[in-house]
Amino acid sequence: MPELPEVETIARGLAPLVVHRTIASLDLRYTPIVKDDPDRFARKVPGHVITRVWRRAKLLILDLGVDFHLVFHLKMTGKVWVPGQGIQPDKHTHLIFDLNDGFRIFFQDQRKFGYCALFDEPGLKNWSFFADLGPEPLEMPTADFIEIFQQKKGRIKALLLDQKNIAGIGNIYADESLFMAGIHPETPGWSLGRQELARLHSCLQEVLCQAIDAGGSSFRDYKNALGYAGMFQEKFLVYGKKGCSCPRCKTGIETRKVAGRTTCFCPECQKLPNPR
């Protein structure tokens, strides 16, 4: 699933291509991809100027004028991109926005788990999924990060994945930041001291910024706004490295399930503390 760096990369790449352009028409090829009444969606969207492209957590948002927000959740295999001249939609292209100057926006999703929705301003603010999102990790002060996690009883990996605690973090960047901080993924949040949490926040911000600079991480499906793969997967320290040597101590990387997700860590560099 695209996480914060991937969606941020898409938003930054999409903005100069589509902002100030008008959606002239749309082609809805698979109606369940829209979490709305299809007829209302097809009637309301055309004619609006795209005024802003931005990200909140793992959501990609296009502002339409001052009245509406076009929201995409990419889930596991969704892609929102601007194809080059002559590129035709394939069977996984479920929604096409035709812009006023010949540009198009494709929404593709091989597994059809992603969706698009149209909200007005009150509707977006009152949408429970949006309203319940935690703060953005690249924007929050360290003191706020510490306050959120130091009283939590859950395991720190699970706490990082909980979008109500902090927005946009998924499996990749939780594993990478915990390794950088030297924290075992099953460590209870309450057992971490202020210095440990401050270090984790710093490492989380560092790995997110590195990933954004590299255009995100690509495996099977993720592509940026122009259809190109990201490069951060070439810099992974532990994620997906089961059986490989730790880049620090050469111990074999291990995996276990945490919060239902396969979790990669070094048992030597990330020791689980004894319970108090």
Rank of each mutant, 00 (worst) to 15 (best):
F72E: 02
L74M: 04
F68H: 11
H73Y: 11
F72Q: 01
V45G: 05
I50H: 02
L64R: 13
H69M: 08
K58G: 01
K75F: 00
L70D: 00
T51N: 12
M76H: 02
I50R: 06
L74T: 03
R55H: 06
F72L: 02
V45W: 01
R52I: 11
M76Q: 03
A57W: 07
R52H: 14
I61H: 02
L60H: 03
L62T: 13
W54I: 01
D67G: 14
I50P: 08
H73A: 13
D63A: 15
D63F: 03
D67T: 15
T51C: 07
V71Y: 02
L62I: 10
A57I: 10
V45P: 00
H48W: 02
V53A: 07
L62P: 05
R52Q: 15
R52N: 14
I61L: 05
R55L: 12
W54K: 11
M76F: 00
V49H: 04
R56Q: 14
A57K: 07
H48Y: 05
L60F: 11
H73G: 08
H48F: 01
P46D: 10
R55Y: 11
K75C: 00
V71S: 10
G47W: 13
K58T: 01
G65N: 07
L62V: 11
D63Y: 07
T51Y: 11
F68C: 07
H48D: 04
L60N: 03
L60A: 08
G65T: 05
H69V: 06
V49I: 10
A57L: 05
I61C: 04
H69S: 12
K75T: 01
L59W: 12
W54V: 00
D67Y: 15
W54P: 00
R56Y: 10
H73Q: 12
L59Y: 14
L60Q: 06
V71H: 06
L74W: 02
I50K: 06
F68L: 15
V71I: 12
R52E: 14
H69E: 10
G65H: 08
P46E: 06
V45Q: 01
V49N: 06
V66S: 15
L70Q: 04
V66T: 15
L70M: 08
L60D: 09
A57T: 12
H48C: 02
L74R: 04
K58C: 03
F68K: 09
T51M: 04
H73V: 05
H73C: 09
I61M: 03
A57N: 10
V49F: 01
D63G: 11
I61E: 00
I61W: 01
V53P: 08
K58S: 06
W54N: 05
K58Y: 09
P46L: 09
V45I: 04
V45R: 00
T51D: 08
F68W: 15
L70I: 08
P46H: 05
L59K: 09
L74A: 04
V49D: 04
M76T: 01
H48L: 01
L59R: 14
F72V: 00
D63R: 12
V45D: 04
V53I: 06
L70E: 06
M76P: 02
L70P: 06
V49S: 07
L70C: 04
H48P: 03
A57G: 13
V66P: 12
K75M: 11
T51L: 03
L62N: 06
F68D: 12
L70S: 05
